[in-house]
Design a protein around this nucleic acid. Structure first.
Lengths: 147, 147
DNA sequence: TTTTAATCAGATTAATTTATCTGAATAATA
DNA sequence: TATTATTCAGATAAATTAATCTGATTAAAA
């Protein structure tokens, strides 16, 4: 069950949030991320590869290699990850699936949805990964507990 | 590109909105709905069949048969269609895909998303099809114009 | 230098969602 | 009664998304 993002994007967001909790200079292998987040290793690896191509994440090959953020957590916003994986069409499409939904040709819920969409966009744009760090750590620790 | 509902659900919502614009006693064939909304006939037919099973829509077989609302437009809310097709898990799932997201174990955007989710739910619950009638007619007429 | 553990790339498979097809049953109407 | 246009049911196909596999390359460390 996905809410508004694809699984790929959800996992990407989780993984990047996880990387943002690492101490300065540390990196995490796909195996570690997979284990900590309970998501398929090969899949998260593939997703991080694609983020690497877009410079949001960096990687080092070989023994003791892994993934780490491409720039400081204080300079990355969630929307960048969404854009890189799912794109931003979400913020431009009619929630009822009508074609050409716009202020000129609004669907029946156009105005109401418009406000929600703006808030959602804002949620992903207002803060950086740095801001989410504490909450991320708390959440991820709990995932561990369940296993 | 789908925003929060599946294509099936988007088409279902559109079709039911369309049925709500019909004059008293009229019904619409799958072919008519397909043509007016520019959506695949077989697919919308299948979706309406499933809504028929849930009594939201009624159908009549044979020549000049078709689909019509199962109860007055003033008694149907959009959320009923969503529930019948996609279910309501959407309103209970973590937007970042974390497991067991709750006030006790919140994900980093839990609170912000919670508000959005409530507004979205409200958008689908507050008004009946009757309320959307005018807007629906305006929107559907425009789809016709484009063809 | 050898071993080991990692990323990377690309192919493949699996699962899910979306869409179409076919044939039977039904009912209005000519 | 014959014709026609429809729903209905179920099978199938196509497309998309999610997940896995394999082999090559890389680099740290023994």
């Amino acid at each position: 069950m996905t809410v508004i993002f694809s699984k790929k994007c959800e996992y990407g967001l989780q993984a990047v949030l996880y990387l943002s909790t690492l101490d300065e200079g540390r990196m995490a292998s796909a195996e570690e991320i997979s284990r900590k987040l309970s998501i398929p290793k090969e899949f998260v690896s593939k997703i991080l590869q694609s983020l690497t191509a877009k410079k949001l994440v960096k990687s080092r090959k070989g023994n003791s290699g892994g993934f780490y953020l491409g720039k400081p957590a204080s300079k990355i916003k969630l929307i960048e990850i969404v854009d890189a994986i799912d794109g931003l069409a979400l913020f431009n499409s009619c929630v009822l699936g009508f074609p050409d939904c716009s202020p000129d040709e609004p669907c029946p819920v156009h105005n109401k949805w418009g406000k929600l969409r703006s808030s959602a966009y804002e949620m992903l744009t207002a803060e950086t990964l740095e801001h989410f760090k504490k909450k991320t750590i708390a959440k991820i620790n709990r995932i561990g507990k369940k296993k």
